[in-house]
């Protein structure tokens, strides 16, 4: 029912209000004495030697894509999990076939080395 979600909406308003108020407070409270060195990006106390925005390892993209694949499949387990009792053993067999298909893909990315971190 839709009205079950009204409390979530109200909590969202309260939580967002709390978060934004806190961020707002940081803009007005506290001293503000900027100097050139203080406003540098942190670099272990050294002056900057390279621009801070750099490329980062592609590994992280691979992990993110694998996560998307597996997480979407993990979500599809939930309706099945609720309904397994009425579906009986045939429900188990069907999901087993799906998991085996998933497993083939998993073994493939494992053999390809996508899960190895150097």
């Amino acid at each position: 029912m839709v009205k079950d979600y009204v409390p979530l909406l109200i909590l969202a308003v309260v939580a967002a209000g709390f978060a934004l108020t806190n961020i707002g407070i940081t803009l007005v409270v506290g001293p503000w004495r900027p100097t050139r060195e203080k406003m540098d990006p942190y670099e272990s106390g050294m002056t900057e030697i390279q621009p801070p925005r750099q490329r980062f390892p592609i590994k992280f993209y691979v992990i993110a894509m694998l996560f998307l694949l597996f997480d979407i499949e993990a979500i599809s387990f939930f309706p099945w999990a609720v309904l397994l009792r009425p579906l009986h053993f045939s429900g188990f067999i069907e999901m087993f076939i799906f998991v085996v298909a998933l497993l083939i893909g998993y073994l493939y990315i494992w053999k390809k080395g996508a899960l190895d971190w150097e």
């Binding site: 979530l8 909590l11 969202a12 309260v14 939580a15 967002a16 709390f18 978060a19 934004l20 806190n22 961020i23 940081t26 803009l27 409270v29 506290g30 001293p31 503000w32 004495r33 203080k38 406003m39 540098d40 990006p41 942190y42 801070p52």
Partner: peptide
């Protein structure tokens, strides 16, 4: 404390990010 905001930050996202974190944690 002084709310040090380094020169090169993307100000809008920089201010919003901790708010997102705490919002999600409460929700």
């Amino acid at each position: 404390k002084e709310q040090i905001t380094p020169r090169e930050v993307r100000t809008g996202v920089y201010l919003l990010a901790p708010a997102i974190s705490i919002f999600v944690a409460i929700m």
